[in-house]
Simulated scan of single mutants.
Amino acid sequence: MLFTVDPGSSSPLFEQLAASIRGAILSGRVAVNERLPAARDLAVALDINIHTVLRAYQELRDEGFIELRRGRGAVVTDRARDYSALARDIDTIVAEAKRLELTPGAVSAMIREAW
């Protein structure tokens, strides 16, 4: 599994890591019921603090992408499969927004309004 973070980015590392893992799940590079690396191992591999990894894992747990199981670590949930269709729809929306030359802020505002 290849997850990345950019220490030079203005985005917090835990958000970058959560986005990287989320993307891997949605693209199918990480499968349902697959175990993610142990937080300590991932922290060492990415040269970041273990608490950064744990915070990313907690965010993904709160979103329903993973379960944190004592003794088994972080495991991708069945529910994550349901997000794949939404991800495809979002790709379609982004492509259409780019075609219409809308800004990300405008698209976000439209989504918030619909919500």
Rank of each mutant, 00 (worst) to 15 (best):
G73T: 02
R81I: 03
L13T: 01
V32E: 11
A106C: 01
A85C: 07
A87K: 08
T92Q: 15
L26V: 07
Q58G: 12
V30K: 04
L2I: 09
D89A: 15
S108M: 06
D47H: 11
G64M: 07
E59V: 12
D6K: 01
A56Y: 06
L17R: 13
Q16S: 03
I21R: 09
E113Q: 06
L13K: 01
R61G: 06
A39R: 02
T52Q: 06
A114M: 10
V76H: 05
L100M: 15
S11N: 04
W115Q: 01
T4Y: 01
L100I: 12
S27N: 12
I66D: 12
M110H: 03
R61Y: 13
E63K: 10
M1S: 07
P7Q: 07
M110V: 02
H51Y: 07
A31Q: 09
A38V: 02
S27K: 05
N49M: 07
L86V: 04
R40E: 13
D62G: 05
L102D: 03
L86E: 10
D78Y: 08
S27T: 09
S11F: 04
G28D: 04
L26I: 07
E101V: 05
A97P: 13
S11V: 08
H51T: 15
D89G: 12
A97K: 11
T103W: 01
R40N: 04
E63G: 10
L54R: 11
T103G: 06
L102N: 01
P7L: 01
S108D: 00
V44D: 14
E59K: 14
R40W: 00
G28C: 06
A95N: 12
D78E: 15
R70C: 05
R29L: 09
N49S: 11
V30I: 15
A19L: 10
E63I: 08
K98N: 11
F14I: 00
L68W: 14
R55Q: 15
F3A: 13
W115D: 00
S27C: 02
